[in-house]
Each structure stands twice: as structure tokens, then as C-alpha cells.
Design a protein around this nucleic acid. Structure first.
Lengths: 205, 205
DNA sequence: CAAATTAAATGAACATTGTTCATTTATGCA
DNA sequence: TGCATAAATGAACAATGTTCATTTAATTTG
């Protein structure tokens, strides 16, 4: 069945095209400003066609949110070369920060917006795998740091959450425009500067 | 002119009524689910009346966002009694965390949602006073800690931003439903637990 | 106090959105 | 070529933010 295979491939290609278009518009104009109509228009298909490939707008958001985690994970790949877990932890934070600052719309989709998570809420027993595995990677690294006698007296899970929160919080304040009041630095600079302070603390732990 | 005064007061009262209704609906059903229509219906006025008192929906969001800062500021009042700046810093964090966990919708309005900030973007040279003064309070406390030889080798502004980010980040992850994957604790518990880890670190600085 | 003027309130109407679905068009097969 | 299936369409609906001509109420004035 050569034709059947081709059709499946074609369907997959259109699906990808929709996602690509959606993403482009998100990045250019923001998630809120991107409508199903604008996505459809962008690829010269009708509104209805988009709904043939995605249940609703949230499904698109969720898919892109997953793509975001794939990309962040890809950027994390270089960390495998870093032997020392503490160094790896530090490098991981840097990559995370850079990703957030360079891809604010994607970051919002991944860590802030409720919409992409509603897909999970609808289907019972669905879990946020992306987040859990990302958290798992961080936790493993922190655990390895602890094995080397760092973070003595700390509890693994809450400490990991705190570190995640620290990095996420600075990104989040920056992206939601709340870090503007801190004027001594350019918008993205304060995030980096804040991280440097964290590193000074890390050295002591 | 007694009548003129009364009219001004009446106008102010209806304005407050709209805000009160809006806030009630926000807290009950979430910001996204609260429409101008539902606000109007809730107080038995027409849609148009709401627009007589507020330019648009963002103006209502902005006003409530400001109310949120007033309330958080009120809760911070007890901190005046805490002499030691480090203790004060710790207590401030606790109050902040509790406020966020107890008032998630308000917190989102204050620190996450873009809409209430758009009011500022429209009018040039307007600043985010609420955020800046809140940041200022935190900065002053950190500065006093530094005067007592804590945080040696750190820079005031970036360190303050880092601490704010740390606390905000955990709240933000919790509220946006991203802390669910961390299963060993109940939803709000992980935020507290994370903060405890931060305190362990603080003791050493 | 009645008429006129001003202020306040109304809700129909519009534009924009997400979403659905009966209809049309294209495609693959006998 | 005709038929059955798949894909695509876009009109139409409901919900939303917003506007504005009209109505209603209140106040002032002669």
C-alpha cells in the first residue's frame, strides 16, 4: 500500500505545517494575538482544516509546549560532557536562563500559561511528563552533588524545587515585564546578574 | 454644594462596587472566566455602566492589581516590629509565600498576567510604582543585612532580585500548576518545604 | 413648580474570537 | 468513467470586549 503510506505522511506534513505556522506567529506576535484564523490564513488553509488536525487551540499550545521541552532537552545534551555535578548544575542553569531569555513566548507556553496544561486536566490520569522528566534531570544532578558532599543537611526534593524556582522566578519576572523596575541593568542583564549572585552562594554549599 | 459632593461620593461608591464584584468573580471563577457582562450582572447594572467607570477590562485588572499590592503591603506592616534585618527578611518571605498561596488569582494579577501592565505601556512615562516600591522594601532589608555583614561579596541589586525571584518562582510554579509533578508533598507544601531549604542556606550567609 | 438642561444608565449592535458542521471538492479504486 | 471515501471548506453560532445612539433620572433654572 504505497498510497496509504503517502497519505499518512501527507497528513503528518500538514500537521507539522500548522504547528510551524502557529509557532512562527506566536513568536512574532505573542500567543494571545495568534488566532486560529491567522494560523489558517498563514498556510492558505481554511479554519476548519486546522480543526481537522487539532482538537482545539489548547491542543496546539500543548504540542508546542512539548516541542519547547524537546528543544530545551536538546540544549541540555552538552551537559553530558561535564563530569563534575556542581559544574553541570551551574551550566544547566545557564542554558535554562538563556533559553528563557531567547525564547520568551516558548518559555511562557512551557512554564506559565494555563492553557497547554488544560489538555492534561481534561483527560484523567494524564501527567505532565515533560515537566516531571525535566525536574528529574535536575534532581539527579542535585543528588550527585549531594553524593559529593555538597548541600549537606538539605533535603533533595525541596532543595531541587527551590533551585528550579530560583531560576524560573527570575526568568518569569523578566518575561512578564516585572523586572523592569530594577533599572541598573538592561532587561535581560538583571537575570544574568541575579544568577551570578546565586553562583557565589553555590560555591559555599 | 452638598449635592455635588454626594454625587462624587456616589460615583466613587459604584466604582468600588464594580471592583468588589470583579474581584469576587475573579477569586471564584478565575480572571479568564470573568467577563464584563458577568461583573455587570452581578451588581445589577448594564454593561455600558461598567465602561462609564473603567476605560476597559485592563483598567479593572490594573486597579485590582494595585489593591493586591496594598494588601500585601498591609500584611508586611508587622515586619516593622522585627529588629534584626535577617529575621525580617525571613519573615517577609513567609508572608509573601502565604499571600501567594492564599490568593493565587490576586498573585497572578500582581506578578504574572500581562494585561494589568498594559495600562502602563499605553501611557508613556508611566512606571510600575507598586512593583518598584515593593522591590525597594526588599532591597532596603537586604541592604540592612549587608550592613550587619551578611551577604559578603554580594551586590545589592542583583542579590535582591535573586531572592525575589527565588520566592516568586516557587509561588509561580505552584500557581501555574507546574509543581504538581513534585509529588512527595501536597501542592502548597512543596512551596513551604522549598523555602525551608532556602532558610538553611541563609543561615550560612 | 414646570420646563430645560445636564448627568447617568441602558442595551442593541459591532468586531473579533473559538468552534461546529452541513456542504463541496478532491482522491483513490473498481 | 463512476462511485465511495477522505479532505477541505467557510458559513454560522456562541461568547466576548467594546461603542454609542437612545432613554431615563436628576438637577438646575425661570
Amino acid at each position: 500500500m504505497g498510497t496509504a503510506e503517502r497519505k499518512i505522511k501527507e497528513k503528518e506534513e500538514l500537521r507539522e505545517l500548522i504547528l510551524k505556522s502557529a509557532r512562527k506567529l506566536f513568536v512574532e506576535n505573542g500567543v494571545a494575538q495568534t488566532t486560529i484564523r491567522s494560523i489558517a490564513k498563514n498556510i492558505d488553509y481554511s479554519i476548519g482544516t486546522v480543526y481537522l488536525y487539532f482538537k482545539d487551540k489548547n491542543a496546539i499550545l500543548n504540542e508546542l509546549h512539548t516541542q519547547g521541552f524537546s528543544e530545551l532537552g536538546r540544549q541540555f545534551k552538552v551537559l553530558a560532557e561535564v563530569e563534575d555535578p556542581m559544574e553541570r548544575l551551574i551550566a544547566m542553569g545557564r542554558i535554562y536562563l538563556r533559553f528563557a531569555v531567547e525564547n520568551p513566548e516558548m518559555y511562557e507556553l512551557m512554564f506559565t500559561l494555563k492553557a497547554p496544561m488544560e489538555v492534561l486536566n481534561e483527560a484523567k490520569d494524564k501527567e505532565w511528563n515533560e515537566g516531571q522528566s525535566a525536574f528529574g534531570v535536575l534532581k539527579t544532578t542535585v543528588d550527585q552533588c549531594m553524593a559529593r558532599k555538597h548541600f549537606q543537611g538539605h533535603r533533595l526534593e525541596p532543595l531541587t524545587f527551590m533551585i528550579w524556582g530560583l531560576v524560573h522566578g527570575m526568568c518569569s519576572l523578566h518575561i512578564s515585564d516585572r523586572a523592569n523596575g530594577v533599572k541598573l541593568h538592561d532587561a535581560a542583564g538583571i537575570v544574568q546578574a541575579g544568577y551570578e549572585e546565586f553562583l557565589k552562594i553555590l560555591k559555599k554549599l
